[in-house]
């Protein structure tokens, strides 16, 4: 990177991570916990989008749904079925929170794809809290519902007795790695996609500086389009995966027997 900058004088500017900087919306002061930042703006837009879809979309309460109402009902049915299929009927109690998480992540991902947008879900702090809430509540629910039987989750009954202690250690480790992988998967995916798009975008103005740009610029623009398409897919899949893993973890808490 330093090399490129030196070669081209004014040079290509590679700042793939600048889009993730949290900065105040008004003024230039320090970021306190209450400061209205771009995080606030894009989360608020996400919440507004959720409300527009789920509340206003279904406001007409028609028996034969319109377009927005169809999408709202489809979303409802999609997550409802997921929760019911994976966690069983007992899991439906937590359905509102799971839907909240799904819609929040989905809209944060999608809105983050707009040019110049900020993606809250690309931050470890955000996804980490989301995953931690799931982890802590799953653990608490597991112990409240099953008492010490919840610990049987780590004691694999179907394995030979000699192997069980080793498996128990592995299971415990994998249990505590869950929130880490749960959060980093989402944040990493969002961060990676946006950073890659930014790197390609940084190559795009090469045509203004050097002859090789005739080749590089169209390539990079095609690459941006392709990455963008992939990112739209990833935005949905990551929201889906986060939700489905939440359901799977919740199932462990409700039915710890392997």
């Amino acid at each position: 990177m330093a090399e490129t900058g030196a070669e081209h004088g004014e040079g290509l500017s590679f700042h793939p991570m600048d889009q993730f900087i949290v900065k105040p919306l008004f003024g230039d002061g320090p970021v306190h916990w209450y400061t209205i930042t771009n995080v606030t703006l894009w989360m608020a837009l996400g919440v507004v989008a959720v409300i527009l879809l789920m509340v206003t979309g279904a406001a007409r309460r028609s028996i034969v749904p319109g377009r927005a109402q169809s999408i709202a009902e489809l979303t409802y049915g999609f997550i409802h079925k997921m929760v019911e299929d994976i966690c069983g009927k007992e899991g439906l109690k937590y359905f509102p929170y799971i839907l909240t998480v799904f819609l929040f992540i989905l809209f944060a991902n999608f809105l983050g794809l707009l040019p110049m947008a900020f993606t809250p879900t690309s931050h470890i702090a955000v996804t980490g809290l989301l995953a931690l809430v799931v982890f802590v509540s799953v653990t608490v629910i597991g112990f409240v519902k099953n008492g010490t039987h919840f610990l049987e989750l780590f004691w694999v009954k179907s394995a030979p007795l000699a192997l069980r202690p080793i498996l128990a250690v592995i299971e415990v480790i994998s249990y505590f790695v869950r929130p880490v992988s749960h959060s980093i998967r989402l944040a990493g995916n969002m961060m990676a996609g946006h950073a890659v798009i930014k790197v390609f975008a940084a190559f795009a103005p090469l045509i203004l500086m050097s002859g090789i740009g005739v080749l590089v610029t169209p390539l990079s623009i095609v690459a941006i389009v392709a990455m963008y398409g992939l990112e739209v897919l990833v935005a949905f899949i990551q929201a889906y995966v986060f939700t489905i893993l939440t359901c799977v973890y919740l199932k462990d808490a409700l039915h710890p027997a392997h």
């Binding site: 949290v22 916990w33 930042t37 989360m43 809250p120 931050h123 702090a125 955000v126 809290l129 961060m191």
Partner: peptide
């Protein structure tokens, strides 16, 4: 920026 811990309280609060 993801590891800039000074912005964590802000993000967590708004989240």
């Amino acid at each position: 920026p993801q590891l800039d811990f000074s912005s964590f309280p802000n993000q967590i609060f708004w989240l």
